[in-house]
Write a protein that binds this DNA or RNA. Structure first.
Lengths: 350, 350
DNA sequence: TCTGTATATGAATGCGCATTCATTAGCATG
DNA sequence: CATGCTAATGAATGCGCATTCATATACAGA
């Protein structure tokens, strides 16, 4: 394991050709005789040669439209969250299928995004996907200046010159209100993320708007940090007071499940007999037999396919204006809304 | 956004120094006057200069012990699985804290690991972590030849010259059997991953061994693919037959929760009254109020810290022999084993 | 056989940086 | 003031590859 790895020169020598020929043998579409290519490939196999991607991207740095590093940066918060874990898994598959690698950076808050981006950009990533966080105005300009396309997933562009794919949060909030209203509820609470969270605010806004149209205002309001534990705590607070809500819309399934468990198992309440509950996202656990959580589904497979597709286009044709695409959420009726669902009459675990 | 980014030459010109000086200004410990360094840093800030990590690693390729690319490869299967999502999140934090970036590659089966490694190694990663999968003998040698340390997480080395961090599966299996035996069970079933899965086999072996010591053999055996759905199906099969087991040890919490939900909500069984259940891993959902799953905990924070630490050492001092570290699992008594637990008398959701 | 065109090939070059080597400046001592 | 030393600096170099440019070769048509 002494000296470094095999280079194209070694292969060239072994195959009796020039280094250029070796490079051509590994470049699809290059001008090289089939016979020569075979000879090179054989020698390469013999020596265990693997082109050095780092050197390649150094070299291609000159050419304009070429793939630069082959890496896409990913900035993500809360990777533990099933919602993000699924997203990353999906992104990974799509990106890999198109020949890109993922350079992953996790951050603890939106405040760290710029720093993460800086760090990532030193690797000359060909593009970057930011999940549920937003970059600064300044950093957006830096990215543009570097020609690095940015894709915001699950976040609004807020006027920045970047692409975005997300869910129609406002509409989703209205949808949730619709069904709760239709079920005849009147004391409807909302549980969201912290006040700074755009996504949660949009869902709340749509929800509140629809309630207002029915002459109602939210009965109560709690918030958490998108974890099960914080949902559980919010649930405990919600039902500790005197006048209880008779329905809850929660801006995230994970927290909604926290509320559900708190209500059923900490407090002994019955859902949907004592109150109705609706979540957002439709994570897998929402469909578990013991949960059967009614929720607003995000079509994440389609969303991610679209996000990768838009980003790929931007990476291949730099200079194009950014695209934004919003997907509608779908109501998934299960068993946590009174009178509405697939099995409202069956036992719900109480 | 025309020509490419700012280089060290641009900064040199702006600061009125040579390119070497710029490089030194960014290299801790280099011989440069403080005054000069400040001048360079000012100019760099002015121009928005960021050192090019790709070029840097090209350049440092010559020096022996130096950090090469600053990237660590990660190969993972089933990123959707909460167990892995947590692991990746943890790895990410530790690696970042030490200044490394993660180049992530997801694979669908162990068969693809070699291919993934090849792909990753083209980026001259400084090391690689493989989660719950194993590389081939041949590829292990290639990694050694390239001086790329390999860390197997959650997998045995099987004699390969690589490092590993994992849980004592055999002991864990025994532990599970211990508690079930102590609770007085006699018709004890096992649910594992598919037959090819090492982890599952080891847990089963320990479990079966301990049962044998008590004069018992497993009452029944089912397997799944580590998803909730497959656990649920296994549960359905388990209790569809005539003679039911009175206890189940499941090699993974995710599947155990599938069994739990199937039993309670599909079949109306009571846990632990009708049967006891014990899982493995201690994922967060195991502790949810409605689950309270008794399980064998993996100390994943410590395990991951240790894995990163071992890998870091190997990356910094190449040529050192690999290390393997096995952690013991801990029994977490909750409410799914009859007569043993924190609240065996409280309602369990039935 | 000669010319013209298409195709293959090798030599040379540069991507952006860290480092080595040679030189110079700065400073203390005799 | 000369000498010896250290610290700071710039010029030059190469990491491994893709590409350009200039040749060389093959082959068709006249």
């Amino acid at each position: 394991m002494r000296k470094t790895s095999v280079t194209s020169y070694d292969v060239a020598k072994a195959a009796g050709v020039s280094q250029s020929a070796v490079s051509r043998a590994f470049s699809p579409g290059a001008s090289i005789a089939e016979k020569t290519r075979q000879r090179v490939l054989d020698a390469a196999r013999e020596l265990g040669y693997q082109p050095n991607a780092i050197a390649r991207s150094m070299s291609t740095a000159r050419q304009e439209p070429s793939q630069k590093s082959g890496m896409v940066g990913i900035v993500v918060t809360r990777l533990e969250d099933p919602f993000f874990a699924h997203a990353i898994a999906n992104f990974s598959r799509h990106l890999q299928a198109r020949g890109w690698h993922m350079l992953l950076f996790t951050v603890d808050s939106s405040a760290e995004v710029d720093e993460a981006l800086n760090s990532l950009m030193q690797y000359r990533i060909d593009g970057v996907i930011i999940l549920s966080a937003i970059l600064s105005d300044h950093m957006a300009q830096v990215c543009r200046a570097q020609g690095t396309p940015v894709m915001l997933y699950n976040r609004d562009t807020k006027g920045l010159e970047v692409s975005a794919v997300g869910i129609a949060n406002h509409e989703g909030g209205r949808l949730a209100a619709d069904i709760l209203l239709e079920a005849g509820h009147e004391r409807i609470a909302f549980v969201g993320g912290d006040a700074g969270d755009e996504t949660s605010r949009e869902r709340e806004a749509g929800f509140v708007q629809r309630l207002a149209e029915a002459g109602l205002t939210p009965f109560q309001r709690e918030s958490g940090d998108y974890t099960f534990v914080s949902g559980r705590e919010a649930g405990l607070r919600l039902f500790a007071r005197h006048g209880r809500p008779d329905a809850v819309f929660c801006a995230s399934d994970v927290m909604a499940l926290g509320i559900l468990h708190a209500a059923r198992f900490d407090l002994g309440l019955r859902v949907p007999l004592d109150f109705s509950l609706i979540g957002f996202d439709d994570i897998p656990a929402a469909a578990w037999p013991g949960h059967q959580l009614t929720t607003i589904r995000q079509p994440i497979r389609r969303m991610i396919r679209e996000a990768v597709s838009i980003l790929a286009e931007a990476m291949e044709a730099p200079g194009e204006p950014p695209h934004t695409r919003l997907f509608p959420g779908t109501l998934i009726l299960r068993d946590t809304v009174r009178g509405m669902g697939t099995a409202s009459l069956s036992p719900d675990g109480q």
